[in-house]
Design a protein around this nucleic acid. Sequence first.
DNA 1: GGCAGCGATACCCGGTTGATATCGATACGG
DNA 2: CCGTATCGATATCAACCGGGTATCGCTGCC
Lengths: 270, 270
Amino acid sequence: MRYFVAVAEELHFGRAADRLGIAQPPLSRTIAQLEQRLGVALLTRTSRKVSLTEAGAVLLAEGRAILGAIAAAERRTRTVDRPSLVLAAKAGGSSELLAKLLDAYAAEPGAIAVELLLCEAHTRQPLFDGRADVAILHEPYDSTAGLDAEALYSESQYAVLPNSHPLAGAAQLRMADVIDLPELARWPEPDGTYLPGPGVEVHNLTQLFQMIALGRAVAVMPEIVRTGLLEGLVAVPVVDAPKVTTVIAWPPHSRSRAVADLVRVAMGFS
Amino acid sequence: MRYFVAVAEELHFGRAADRLGIAQPPLSRTIAQLEQRLGVALLTRTSRKVSLTEAGAVLLAEGRAILGAIAAAERRTRTVDRPSLVLAAKAGGSSELLAKLLDAYAAEPGAIAVELLLCEAHTRQPLFDGRADVAILHEPYDSTAGLDAEALYSESQYAVLPNSHPLAGAAQLRMADVIDLPELARWPEPDGTYLPGPGVEVHNLTQLFQMIALGRAVAVMPEIVRTGLLEGLVAVPVVDAPKVTTVIAWPPHSRSRAVADLVRVAMGFS
DNA sequence: GGCAGCGATACCCGGTTGATATCGATACGG
DNA sequence: CCGTATCGATATCAACCGGGTATCGCTGCC
């Protein structure tokens, strides 16, 4: 499965073999055996190009889930003796909520040390590969698919603009006003790639704010960013943007009491 | 992983080896290697008894998820070419909703054949091992953990009693009246075993109703069972029982258009 | 104390997996 | 239009892993 995922991601047997630390021929053979076992073609190969069939695309998604589950199982089993709780959160997010949550949990009887895993984006992945036990994420930007989750609170969204921007003076905006702006910043997809489009590619808040200050980008973001906004930036409410819901999420078969306690404490806030 | 799950479930190397179709010595060796690789003891063995450590319990849960994910991947990949949609539902459940849903979906443009997988109970499992693509399940009896789901409707619960029962004449009941009844029927857990307790063990509706008619059992069930209740049975509303919500659920990384269509049709009902 | 049940150990064998060398096909440049 | 470079497939060999049989050692139990 590792082999197939590598080839499906690289779309190149040589590079995939390299990444796996094996030679190319056994890799070719293994994939061929897999296809035979399943009775389905997973890849279409010409001698110049490799591409996924529909079945291959399905298996790539399923295979990633499998590999994640295996990695998670390994980590969780290994660390069951030394109880620790890893909380994944977005770096630069609402540190106020986080601080309150950590304080409140620490005051609980039986609380254990909480380690923070700050991610640039996409706090889901660490839950699937076992690096984290709980995560704070934000719907609809992050999906809770495959996770158990509880909503903590919702907030409306604001367009963040340089104050030199034509729309900066508006009292309020609508999605239609901003959705087609060519400067709209692009965030990475869960796999780290960017969808094609005109706007600049950013991968963290600092970078984004700098880009906006330079007039190179605009963004639509939750209310929280208004606190501590840089000089020269304005936040204009976008009245019909979907609400952003902050949720606390954990893997469905979590058996940890610490996770349950933390979630209970978090829900006490809402 | 298959090996470990077998041993953890049987708690007996000989029987596990038998079930796996291999001899006992290589099984012992493999488990020992797994423990060494993880650096954690998974099982405590005396020469008379095998039991799970805490780490072992965690790995059992994770391992079942992994094996399910692998089986699901295999099935879904293999059947991607012959589009078919398998819907899991409880046998003896609300066939009215099901009929409406199937009819409405069949009328959709691009609808494909829907195969029905009728389960005695626990319609979740077929989603995890790939035997089904969508399932109708009932919260809180079934959990939607690890699945995407949409609620369809809620209904209140009724105590189903033989009309000779002391409580049969009541206009309404409360949970406190029924929760301690020694005749309260027991349903199997997801793994097929039964929790200990006084009531009879049942595994389908026909059996349950017969037991109730014979005065050997009572049960608390959703409203729907009132339609077509056997002669000699009565349904009394239990006013403070939790509402039962019928939901349609599917695996989180489903890429099937048919599933999306079916869910959309189902949600049109609520 | 002998015996039966069960897991661990010792040892052997065969198939799978990995490495190297080479082939055949295709796109591209001169 | 042909030579060449790139890339996946094939052939062949070696090593290791996973499985089998035989047997040991421990522990309850008549």
